[in-house]
Design a protein around this nucleic acid. Sequence first.
DNA 1: TCTGGGGTCCTAGGACCC
DNA 2: TCTGGGGTCCTAGGACCC
Length: 427
Amino acid sequence: MPRVFALVDCNNFYASCERVFQPRLRDRPIVVLSNNDGCVIARSNEAKAMGIPMGAPFFRFRRLAQHRQVEVFSSNYALYGDMSARVMRILQEYTPSLEVYSIDEAFLDLSGHARRDLGAYARELALTVRRSTGIPVSVGIGPTKVLAKAANRIAKRNPETGGVLDLAALGPHVDAHLERIAVRDVWGIGKRWAEKLEQLGIGTAAALRDADPSLVRRRCSVVVERIVHELRGVSCLALEEAAPPRRQVLTSRSFGTRVERYEDMREAVATFAARTAEKLREDRARAQALTVFLQTSEHDHRTPQYSNAATVPLPRATQDTGELIRAAMDALDRIWKPDHRYLKAGVMLLDLVPEDADQAVLFGAPGEAKRRESRRLMHVLDGVNRDQGTGTVRYAAEGLRKAWRMKQERRSPAYTTRWDQLPVAKG
DNA sequence: TCTGGGGTCCTAGGACCC
DNA sequence: TCTGGGGTCCTAGGACCC
């Protein structure tokens, strides 16, 4: 049976989230910044039209933003995550076969709907999401994921589609559209492969579709070869409804101010370890190894550069914050070098195994009582921090000063996830 | 000028995504 | 002064084993 995929994508997602709770932002240019207020990671259409590029370091556009009265926000992941969950719940009602691909995108398998008018169906879906959440979405429909992505792109760029496009409805006009999509803009083709493909005379989505798959495999990789097939309508990338268990989990941050003191670095790394441990427990997993890395700024040419990482095995798979902090401190001591201005550090947990994988074996085994105690403690810790906010209860090693804390000067309130920050309707 | 051959496992690095 | 964070997959090459 031929497959039919839809890609639903929230338009300018972070900017749209900010807009939902501040109606005065309608029609205003908005940008949202990365952690540490470093780069531009989302823009409303108005901001795009001013030529503020995606990923640009914000300091280069600060004056323009000020001059043109751009609304600037620090990123607010509590808000975006919650809005994303609302959107996904609605999509779930429309189809059980859904892959949440990212915070603002989902693939839907519409193969069972193939005889209905998919365009009308998708328009209704988009309207429902808009009405219930305030978030505008675009929908692209095609026989493969790569083509659904392309259809979505075409829908966004052609206002007459109303943000919804079924590739099948284009008939022979598909070619003209694929010829206008640069190969760089095909899903899965990044800068490097685009350069390579262009050298081979393959510059557009249409040209990639018509390229020799074995040549593409030799010169690029099997991944790019698959994209050729996908562009031809042969589905190689399946819908992944149940996300496979994560293989690693990582917390890292650039510091608000450079870190030079050992004590500050210990505090930061302990904090990252604690946060990573929390994510690990959310995943109901344990880790068998831990990596700490740190680095100076590659943009800073006047002070010595250094970056390094150390991995320590964990004697037994664990999800205990205390144990993970201790391991992180050991790893840090192996790579710490004084007299450097550190920009960034992080903690990564590796070789994850399911929480209960070895429980039968360990029942009654030495250390099992201690482990159960740890589990209860972690449960309480997570409960409090979930209800009262991250970091309400924490380990002493995480510190109080946090001189290195990231910069977030323009964050909007957590409208939807904190009672004390609910928006107030004035009568 | 010679120094087997093949399989598996692991890791580092490069590529991509949002 | 000021340049994000968190993932995945694939491949090449080395270690190790028989």
